Simulated scan of single mutants.
Amino acid sequence: MSGIIKAKGGRSMAFRVYLSGEIHTDWRDRIRDGAAGLGIDFDGPVTDHGNSDDCGVAILGAEDDKFWHDHKGAKLNAIRTRKGIAEADVVVVRFGDKYKQWNAAFDAGYAAALGKSLIILQPEEHDHALKEVDAAALAVARTPEQVVQLLAYVITGTLPG
């Protein structure tokens, strides 16, 4: 069984998953690779840190003040993020070890406010700090492979193994 969903009128649609959160590890690739063949369309933020930070000034013009530099980039990135989350069937938000991901927490809250199915991917040591985020999620996974198994179950109804 594939990840193709029948919409009203019999039109087929691929299952859509938005991958939000930290950009410093290969977790997105592991999920995409593991979910190959499930018919999932993946989306997410721009993960090139320099491009993400500098998109506003590269397109709209330089800023002397770092606040306004970041402000322009954040707004342009928000266009992509809002669209991706709004169109997703499932939103996966990864909280990693290296940096505090304030944007990931915002994305999780935005997805929850839209009523999106939310999967949180985090190490166990973040459980206390993310307890409110976890409470809004439908699942909390520890590894990208668990996320793949969750998605496979949701799409096919079969258990791993």
Results as ranks from 00 to 15, higher is better:
Tyr99Ala: 06
His49Leu: 15
His49Gly: 13
His24Glu: 11
Cys55Thr: 10
Glu87Phe: 09
Lys66Asp: 10
Asp65His: 02
Glu63Val: 01
Met13Arg: 12
Lys100Asn: 13
Phe95Glu: 06
Gly34Leu: 10
Asp65Tyr: 07
Ala58His: 00
Phe106Met: 14
Val90Glu: 09
Ser117Phe: 08
Lys75Ala: 13
Asp43Phe: 10
Val140Ala: 03
Gln101Thr: 07
Tyr99Thr: 14
Leu150Asn: 12
Pro160Trp: 07
Phe15Asn: 05
Gly109Thr: 05
Gly161Tyr: 02
Val46Cys: 12
Arg32Asn: 09
Gly109Asp: 10
Ile155Thr: 02
Leu38Asp: 02
Val140Gly: 03
Phe67Ala: 11
Gly37Trp: 01
Ala104Phe: 00
Gly115Tyr: 12
Arg142Tyr: 07
Asp107Lys: 02
Lys6Met: 11
Ala141Val: 07
Thr143Pro: 03
Phe67His: 09
Val46Ala: 07
Leu76Phe: 06
Ala135His: 05
Glu125Asp: 14
Lys83Leu: 07
Asn103Phe: 05
Gln122Cys: 03
Ile4Lys: 05
Phe95His: 14
Lys75Ser: 14
Ala129Gly: 06
Asn103Arg: 09
Ala152Glu: 14
Val93Glu: 06
Asp33Arg: 08
Cys55Ile: 15
Glu125His: 15
Gly10Ala: 13
Leu138Val: 15
Ala111Met: 02
Gly44Gln: 00
Gly39Tyr: 01
Leu121Met: 10
Leu19Asp: 04
Gln146His: 11
Val133Thr: 13
Ser12Val: 05
Ala152Phe: 10
Asp89Arg: 04
Tyr110Gly: 13
Ala111Glu: 04
Phe95Tyr: 11
Asp97Pro: 01
Ile59Gly: 01
Cys55Glu: 06
Asp64Trp: 02
Asp33Ser: 08
Ala141Thr: 12
Gly96Tyr: 06
Leu118Cys: 03
Tyr153Ala: 09
Gln149Trp: 13
Ala88Met: 04
Glu124Trp: 11
Ala105His: 03
Leu151Cys: 04
Arg142Cys: 10
Ala35Trp: 04
Leu159Gly: 14
Ala141Ile: 05
Lys72Asn: 02
Arg94Val: 05
Glu22Arg: 10
Asp70Phe: 03
Val92Gln: 08
Trp102Met: 07
Ser20Tyr: 00
Gln122Ile: 04
Ala62Asp: 15
Asp97Gln: 08
His126Lys: 15
Phe15Gln: 00
Phe95Pro: 02
Tyr110His: 09
His69Ala: 03
Ala139Gln: 08
Lys100His: 15
Val133Pro: 00
Arg32Phe: 01
Ala86Gln: 14
Phe67Tyr: 15
Val93Ser: 13
Glu145Leu: 09
Asp107Trp: 00
His71Lys: 06
Ala111Thr: 01
Ala141Tyr: 04
His71Ile: 00
Asp53Glu: 14
Phe67Glu: 12
Ile155Pro: 02
Phe15Trp: 03
Arg82Ile: 15
Tyr110Asp: 14
Gly157Val: 04
Ile31Cys: 09
Ala7Asp: 03
Val147Asp: 12
Ile59Cys: 10
Asp65Gly: 03
Ala137Cys: 15
Tyr110Thr: 13
Asp43Trp: 07
Ile155Asn: 01
Pro160Gln: 08
Asp48Cys: 09
Gly56Ser: 01
